[in-house]
Simulated assay, not measured.
Amino acid sequence: MAPIVPHWHRPSHPDIQEVVENPSEYTTKSISRVTLPPFSVFAKFDFPPCTTASEPTYATVQTGRNTHLNLNSDLLYINHSCEPSLFFDVGNFNVLVGPKGLKPGDELSFFYPSTEWSMAQPFDCLCGTPTCRGRISGARDMTEAQLDGVWLNGHIIQLRAEQRAGRQSQDPTAAILQGAVAHAEQALVAARLAARSYSGSFENGTKGTNGIAHKAAPVQHRIAA
């Protein structure tokens, strides 16, 4: 895939970012020019140069359930990695430094499925990290294990929750098991209440066979998350 032809003044972020291009292979990457501590702000998505996009492309960033952004800057050349150095916090329009911090010479990268639900152009990841996920097509197509422990934007978290709920509602076995669990919990609460009521009769003057009154243990109710 040939890189996008820039229509903005370059370099757009010369103080913090160096773009390295390899024309013969049609590849680019970005290198940090700064030292920053973990979770600090690396850059902001300002308007301008950013603009809203009418539809997703391989050059846009998803900012919500149905909203997308044209970066219109060299931030577009920040590649994907399964162990990224940056977070794209699209809810606050910030690019944040990852948990390891940044120093000059570090490659700038972010985890594309942290913003993208379904990518316009999936690809095979070649990041070479120990946790490389292989095929990258968006958070929609990833397993729970693949996203475990990964920083995700709010719209991706919500869409994943809806996806899980939909799968459970379509799975008759899961529905039966959920019903059985709910029934068992109701039966347990009823049993505890009955035990409490029975033990309460001893506190009101009814003695056990050994002549000692018995006090019921307090009932503990499970609170649904």
Results as ranks from 00 to 15, higher is better:
167 R>Q: 13
146 Q>E: 14
149 G>C: 06
147 L>P: 09
173 T>L: 12
159 L>T: 11
156 I>S: 07
147 L>R: 11
166 G>P: 13
174 A>Y: 00
150 V>P: 04
165 A>H: 07
166 G>C: 03
168 Q>W: 00
172 P>D: 11
161 A>F: 09
154 G>F: 13
158 Q>R: 12
170 Q>C: 09
176 I>D: 14
154 G>D: 15
170 Q>R: 15
170 Q>F: 05
156 I>L: 13
174 A>K: 15
172 P>E: 10
149 G>Q: 08
153 N>A: 05
168 Q>N: 12
153 N>T: 10
155 H>L: 10
161 A>S: 07
147 L>A: 02
160 R>G: 04
152 L>K: 11
150 V>G: 01
158 Q>G: 01
169 S>A: 12
158 Q>K: 12
168 Q>V: 09
156 I>P: 11
159 L>P: 00
152 L>S: 04
167 R>D: 10
162 E>S: 00
176 I>P: 00
156 I>G: 04
166 G>L: 01
175 A>R: 15
151 W>R: 07
155 H>I: 05
152 L>Q: 09
156 I>Q: 12
164 R>V: 09
160 R>E: 06
165 A>Y: 00
155 H>S: 09
171 D>Q: 13
159 L>K: 14
172 P>V: 02
169 S>Y: 03
174 A>G: 03
167 R>P: 02
176 I>W: 00
172 P>S: 07
163 Q>M: 05
158 Q>F: 09
152 L>M: 02
170 Q>P: 06
159 L>Q: 15
169 S>C: 01
150 V>S: 01
148 D>K: 12
160 R>S: 04
175 A>T: 13
158 Q>A: 09
146 Q>R: 01
158 Q>S: 12
169 S>I: 03
147 L>F: 02
169 S>V: 06
150 V>N: 02
147 L>K: 10
151 W>G: 00
163 Q>C: 01
172 P>H: 03
165 A>L: 05
150 V>W: 08
156 I>M: 13
168 Q>I: 11
162 E>C: 01
155 H>K: 13
176 I>E: 14
147 L>V: 06
172 P>W: 08
170 Q>G: 05
157 I>V: 14
159 L>C: 06
145 A>F: 04
152 L>Y: 10
153 N>D: 10
145 A>D: 14
157 I>H: 15
155 H>Y: 12
170 Q>W: 07
157 I>D: 12
175 A>N: 12
158 Q>E: 15
156 I>H: 14
169 S>K: 15
167 R>S: 07
174 A>D: 08
169 S>R: 15
149 G>N: 08
164 R>S: 12
176 I>R: 15
167 R>F: 02
171 D>T: 07
171 D>M: 05
148 D>R: 11
171 D>E: 10
163 Q>I: 02
164 R>M: 09
157 I>M: 13
160 R>T: 03
163 Q>R: 08
147 L>G: 04
150 V>I: 11
172 P>G: 07
159 L>Y: 08
157 I>C: 13
169 S>T: 10
169 S>P: 03
174 A>P: 01
